[in-house]
Design a protein around this nucleic acid. Structure first.
Lengths: 116, 116
DNA sequence: TCATCATATCAGTATATGATGATATTATAT
DNA sequence: ATATAATATCATCATATACTGATATGATGA
């Protein structure tokens, strides 16, 4: 049965989705889709600041979406589970098909709005 | 290829995930997982106010996650695509396995925090 | 030990966004 | 036509949360 039935679990699951719902975190997950990267490499790949990346990585790590492995001075991050990648792919397909209207959604704006 | 490659698409996709990242919206999607419901039934199923449900439904509708069909005075809502349900199920499994740490994530709090 | 590089932490701030309450709309029945 | 039921819209407010900048921690090499 789905955990979803339990209202407490709904909050937890919403929290899980929040891992994916911010452009910065999503670009980090995307960068990791092809394999492990160091924090510095993620910074370079995403164009975010080191502090910001590190904050988001802590978030993703706590959530269990990524795992960290120290190697010397570097910390390598990678997706914790192939299903994380599957979620990204599924969402991508949804976007391509039915969810094109996301552009129009005005209840929440992820930075940019329709006029760009 | 994944849309994700394009930075603009990352924002769109983040927006898509936001559809799932709020407990109220998620409980609405969950309620619809078993089939179409009227707004009133969703209100009853979720315990949210009519206004709130309607606002969130507009959001989900604009995003393309649900579709609406008027029948007399009632409007029936249902998930727009089976992959929406698949996303819910995948997330559920992720939670059960690797993402238990979501409880601990302190960067963002969905209402409740660890002390409950 | 000390210097340096890589990463993490944290407080402060500005903004985004969810909830509410009032009101508007639309559909049906009498 | 009017009343009523079902749903939608909108402005307001309070809160959550992402970003920044400064600093701290930890690892390595000299």
């Amino acid at each position: 049965m789905l955990l979803l039935a339990n209202p407490k679990s709904i909050e937890i699951q919403a929290k899980l989705f929040r891992g994916f719902s911010d452009p910065s975190r999503l670009s980090i997950l995307d960068a990791l889709h092809n394999g492990a990267l160091t924090v510095g490499e993620i910074v370079e790949a995403t164009g975010l600041t080191q502090s910001n990346v590190s904050n988001h990585l802590a978030c993703l790590r706590d959530c269990g979406l990524v795992i960290a492995e120290q190697q010397g001075r570097f910390v390598y991050y990678e997706l914790s589970d192939q299903r994380v990648g599957q979620l990204l792919t599924l969402a991508d397909q949804l976007l391509a098909d039915v969810a094109k209207g996301v552009y129009e959604c005005t209840r929440y704006n992820v930075k940019a709005s329709k006029n760009d």
